[in-house]
Computed example of a mutant assay.
Amino acid sequence: MDKPDVDYIRGISPAIAIEQKVSIKNNRSTVGTSTEIYDYLKLLFARVGRTFSPVSGNQVRKDSVADVVDYLFSLPADTRVTILAPLLRTEPGRPMSKELDLLLQKGYGRVVLADGQNAFIEDLIGEGKPEVEGDIFILIDRAAVQPGDEDLQFRLSDSVQTAFFEGHGTCIVKLDNETRTFSDKFELDGEVFEEPSVNFFSFNNSYGACHTCEGFGSVLGIDEDLVIPDKSMTV
C-alpha cells in the first residue's frame, strides 16, 4: 500500500495498514516484518543502542583518537602529558631484549619501565645486559598542553594513533599524578562484547537469532515423560 503524501498529521493515533498479497504461513512472520516498522526499529537500536556490562553495570564503549585528543585539550594549560603504548611480544617466547631491538629499528629511542623511570633503549640491550623485568611502555610523545594550538593538536592526533597501533588497541596517557588508559576495543571488565548492528537485532537472522530456538520461538525435541508416561512398565 502506497504511503499518503502529507506534510503534517495531528490528533490521529498511529495505525498500520497491511496489504495481504500472498497468504504464506511462516512461524517467523509478524506485523513488524510484514511492514517497514521492523526495519526502522532495527536501524534505531543499532544506531542509538548502548551496551552495558553485566559485571559492573558500566557502559561499554571504545575510544577513538578524537576522544583521547579531546581529553588532552580539556586539561589545564601547560599540563605535561606523556603518551605511552604497552610493549607487547610480537611472538610468544621471544626475549624482551629482541623486542627492544626491533623497537629501536623502528626509530623509537626511549621506553618507560615498570617503576616509572625513563630509559634509553640502547642502554637496555647489548651483550652482557640482563633481561628487563616487568612491564615496558613505549614512549611515543611528550608535550605541554596548549589549548587552541592546532599544530599541537595534529601532532598529538598522530601520536595517539601511533600509540593505538603499537599498543594493539591500547593508548596510555600519563600525567604528573594520574594515568589514564584508553582502548579502541569494544570490551570492558575482561569481556569482549558485540557491537550493535542491524543484523544483531534480527531474530530471523543467524547473527541475531536466539541460539536455542534459532528464531522460531519454539524448540523441537522429545519429551521423555510423554513418550514413556509410566516408567514402571517394561519396554
Rank of each mutant, 00 (worst) to 15 (best):
D5C: 00
D5S: 05
D7G: 15
I12S: 04
A15M: 09
V22K: 07
S23Q: 02
S23Y: 07
N26C: 13
S29V: 11
V31Y: 12
G32Y: 05
T35D: 10
T35A: 04
E36H: 07
I37C: 13
D39Y: 11
K42H: 05
L43I: 06
F45K: 15
F45C: 10
R47T: 10
T51F: 01
S53F: 06
G57W: 10
D63M: 04
S64R: 02
V65A: 06
V65I: 14
D70K: 10
L72M: 09
S74T: 07
S74L: 00
A77E: 12
D78K: 15
I83N: 11
I83T: 07
S97A: 15
L113I: 03
A119P: 04
D123P: 02
L124Y: 13
K129A: 08
G134N: 01
D135G: 15
R142H: 12
Q146M: 14
Q146W: 13
P147F: 10
L152E: 13
Q153C: 13
S157L: 06
T162H: 06
F164N: 06
H168G: 12
C171T: 09
V173R: 05
R180K: 15
G190S: 06
F193M: 07
P196D: 09
S197I: 02
S197C: 04
S202I: 05
N204R: 07
C210R: 05
C213E: 01
V219H: 12
L220T: 04
E224W: 08
D230K: 10
S232Q: 08
